[in-house]
Design a protein around this nucleic acid. Structure first.
Lengths: 330, 330
DNA sequence: TTGTAAGCGTTATCAC
DNA sequence: GTGATAACGCTTACAA
């Protein structure tokens, strides 16, 4: 691959002039500039960003760390970040962790070695995170998404607890009393824990005993057998799920078990993934602005990088009514 | 940030020795090595990959270009690639194009300037792609996913045409005759076109006239009004969809329109996304191994980078029966 | 086993 | 306006 020096030679100018022709075109006489461009063209010159990065000490790369891309919440978030980063001329280096804290640390270390200009990350549990502890020592601009419990960082998220509390109240308003909640591996998700607290709060406010959280082995798939047992044991009429995939999986399982949704049992999800609206019954869900979470996080990071102070933000959620909840029947 | 020279000085050795302590530990006496590590530790040294990349002319970064991350097919594929790349010590630089050929070219140029060691890409239409034309001139290892029509490249995909032909035959076997097909913007997807050809082939083989492809404005969402018109006009009893999101959207719309699926109308999707299995009725779909497509593409790329010749591959599909198709009723 | 020194392809700081 | 030259932080012959 040709370099700037060859271009300069072919154009009959110095390397400095060739460089200027690209970066500060008006500081170069037009004739010279054209010679440089012609030479560049004929040699198939392509600027080497790595060299530039080393020299300028700035990579224009943003490191992105996410638990998984198999959940649309995160891939939509990533899509939102990608668009915004591109607008600002930044590229994305993306890594996933599968909710594994050791991978979180390894990924972070890698990104730091790559000298990314900033980070947008979502960790499994911000309160017990070696990775965040390390990051705190670093002067690198960083924004967390979905991790409001990381109080030492700038975070972008919705109020998970209040959101789930709101959803629970909605069910209570519909006359439900025996309401249960399921989640994926809860140790791996501070979000799920906050959502459970929201459920508990709403139940207690209504003078009801919250049920223990039913924990599934997988973040996004129901164990139909255990679900059936849970329903029977507590005679549930409504089910809250800590995310939409779990909720959709629950609805499918329930229907196969012979339950009518929402006539016999109401189901509520969390996240508001696009698919939830398409299926029938449309999923009732706490909608968080998925792309916007990513886009705003990236926008905030861009500010930080430019030295502009930027606040943490709690974005609004909405409860999408859908068709998967109905008044309780007695 | 500290550099190797400072570490070396603190350890009382030369820069070369410090470097070797990291890259070829056994070529350094243990005592020296420990001095280096200790110095490195106390200074908080972190290798600068950018400098290494410039020096070694190898970034250990793979460029990834995908149409969108909003379709699980692609995000799963990316997930598969990410795992494999990480295993091999490569990082991923990810960009999306929204099926826009101009963005494809821009993204490619960027990735080339970043001097990625290889590329895994999925383009909108491999037969008309400025981006691939450019790439052909480059000596860079590259693998295409989902673009079997790119004959000058190594491609990993399923046989889209045969797969859709198979699905269509399945419907024919069930007694369906009036079978229609819908797709997203077909100009933007060579895959959709291949799938349509598969449908046409099966229909003709059965002595039936294929219907024109019904093109939706969006890749992943149905226009319910137009769908209804289509159904009525041709009195369809079965509907093929060029992807699963479209199919799920179609099922939802149909149910809201009062159709029973599959009793009145059978629906078949394409891709085999995980969600399709969860909903009820479970989506009948041509399943392609999404993660594997990504993983194998990345594996092939790793081979290419090491100079090992690697063939294009057509992976097997399976038809998942699901619950969204049934025998035709007369 | 360790040190010296050149070089990767830029950008930036000087002079002219 | 343009040119010479020194970094940026690392790897790697080659020497010692």
């Amino acid at each position: 691959m040709t370099d700037l020096l060859s271009v300069a030679r072919l154009a009959g100018v110095s390397r400095a002039t060739a460089a200027r022709a690209f970066s500060e075109p008006d500081k170069v006489r037009e004739a010279t500039r054209n010679k440089v461009f012609a030479a560049s063209e004929s040699l198939g010159f392509r600027p080497n960003y790595v060299a530039r990065q080393l020299r300028t000490q700035s990579t224009r790369i943003i490191g992105v760390m996410l638990p998984t891309l198999s959940n649309p919440v995160f891939s939509e978030q990533l899509q939102g970040m990608e668009h915004l980063a591109r607008e600002h001329g930044y590229a994305l280096m993306v890594a996933t962790t599968d909710y594994d804290t050791r991978r979180e640390s390894a990924v972070l270390e890698n990104l730091l070695r790559q000298r990314v200009d900033g980070l947008v990350l979502t960790v499994a549990d911000a309160r017990h995170s070696a990775c965040l502890a390390l990051l705190e020592q670093e002067p690198l601009p960083a924004v967390l998404v979905h991790n409001p419990s990381a109080t030492n960082f700038i975070t972008i998220s919705v109020d998970n607890q209040r959101a789930m509390q709101h959803a629970t109240q909605q069910l209570l308003t519909l006359g439900h009393i025996r309401i249960g909640m399921i989640a994926g591996p809860v140790q791996q998700s501070d979000r799920a824990q906050l959502r459970y607290q929201g459920y508990c709060g709403a139940m207690r406010d209504a003078g009801l005993m919250p049920l223990p959280l039913m924990e599934m082995a997988h973040h996004t798939r129901i164990d139909a057998g255990r679900l059936a047992a849970l329903l029977a044991e507590h005679a549930l009429t409504a089910l809250l799920c800590s995310n939409d995939l779990l909720a959709l999986s629950a609805i499918g399982s329930l229907q196969r078990l012979g339950y009518a949704v929402p006539e016999q049992i109401s189901v509520v999800g969390f996240d508001g993934i696009a698919l939830g609206e398409m299926v029938c019954p449309a999923l009732c869900s706490v909608v968080q602005p998925q792309r916007e979470l990513g886009a705003i996080a990236m926008e905030s990071l861009m500010n930080l990088i430019q030295g502009v102070e930027t606040p943490s933000r709690i974005l609004d959620f909405t409860l999408r009514r859908g068709e998967s909840i109905a008044p309780a029947r007695f």
